[in-house]
Design a protein around this nucleic acid. Sequence first.
RNA 1: GGCCUGUUGGUGAAGGGGUUUAACACGCCACCCUCUCAAGGUGGUAUUCACGGGUUCGAAACCCGUACAGGCUACCA
Length: 458
Amino acid sequence: MCPQKKMDIEDLRNALFSYLIAKKEDGEFILRIDDANQNLYSLEAEESIYTILSFFGLTYDEGPKKEVENVSYIQSERLPIYKSYAEKLVKRGKAYYCFCTKEELNRKRLEASEEKTSYLYDRVCRNFPKDEANRKILSGEKYVIRETMPEVGQTSFRDLVYGDITILNATLEDQILIKSDGTPTYNFANVLDDALFNITHVISSTKFLTSTPKYLLLYEDLGFPLPEFIHIPEILTDKKDILTDLLGQGFIPSAILNYIAFLGWNPKNTKEFFTLEELIKEFKIESIGKRPTHFDLKKLEWFNKKYIQNMNDTEYINYVRPFLEKFYNMEGKEESWIHHLLLLNKNRISFAAEIGLTAHMFFASEVEYDEECIAFLKSDSSIQNTLRILKKEVETTENWNLETIKEILKHIEIESGVTGKLLYMPIRIATIGIMRGPNLIDCLYLLGRDTILERLKN
RNA sequence: GGCCUGUUGGUGAAGGGGUUUAACACGCCACCCUCUCAAGGUGGUAUUCACGGGUUCGAAACCCGUACAGGCUACCA
């Protein structure tokens, strides 16, 4: 994991797939923090990795918390190791010191691009005599260590998702392993760490697909056994920080995980609900897709709604209540009232924060009618009479409960002679202020006698 | 510029030469239920698989081109 920006949806999906593959293969899921570049490091980002992984139940078997044989999984603490391996490669003739400056290289690259040709490092330092190189280094001259790439032939590997990938060696640059400040490049550090930690399955974004032959060559030069390579498709989104947003809106982790599992994978049957355990059982590397997928909020909302519907009442109340309390002041509200309100919205909301919208009518200090309401109130001559009777009935009702409210409605029906929509809609508009909402009787009950009389004043 | 990968409805996708008049799910639309909305139920929603050629008795599936998209081509990760 990369501690440069907060974990987002694609990082989570990648972690999920890695987790599933590790469990599937009876292996270990290892967390490594790739913070070799301290300039780009962000503490907030690193912490988000721990909190999010644990929040989603993707527990790692090994990670930065423990130290194993004095080796931490945080790269910055192991910088000397990379250097020593690079030196080893130099000794074996698989790598060499290079004294070319950035300026020189940039100039050459620019010239090449002006001529519309590609530039690969021209390998001027490749055949530098060793003792002279050592002399330069001793005298304090800056250098990088580059890998000696083969000039002819091709390099192939089998990706478990994308199949056989072949790259011409002539297109490979003598890649830098150790930068002039002595730190390893990302590519080198990763390959070395993966090898040193005996990583068997390298799962990464398709972004690294074309770099993989380079990694492969590094494994060979280093003399390590090759891992399996699994590249997984990109997730296309038009927004950033989606995950933070989702969590803020109260989306359920298991619902997010369930949805995310389908981003680049599917069970090849029509099953759609999966727990993490079921995913472990049914996930197959062969079923990972090749094409980039779009993140679809609507579908996630549907999943989340289904998860809400599957909760029992207690679970549900515990889930949404914090959000209700965040939006509205619960002072003086009875427990049973809060529960009634919450439950009334159980199959109306897609995610917890939506309670803020659906419960609005019970907390608004005043109701404002929109044009549709106003038009309706004028649509029939019986309406004013209905409301007049409603007011009278409410005023004379002592006990305010679902039963008495039902009776009130019955009385209005008899006295006014109207039924159906013409009976209910005016009451609905006059009390909750909108034409759409939950069951009227429940609404009236929750609103309470006083609020209703207040709203019926005008 | 070179190289790699991908392209099935608005979205996720199944299907890997013939039972496909392209499954299933989201979305959307209509209807039913109903005081309204939501939920639930029923149905509709792809003149056909990016395009053009080829192979074949037969192609969404195999091959070749083209287009488009993304990635790599950094002393970024």
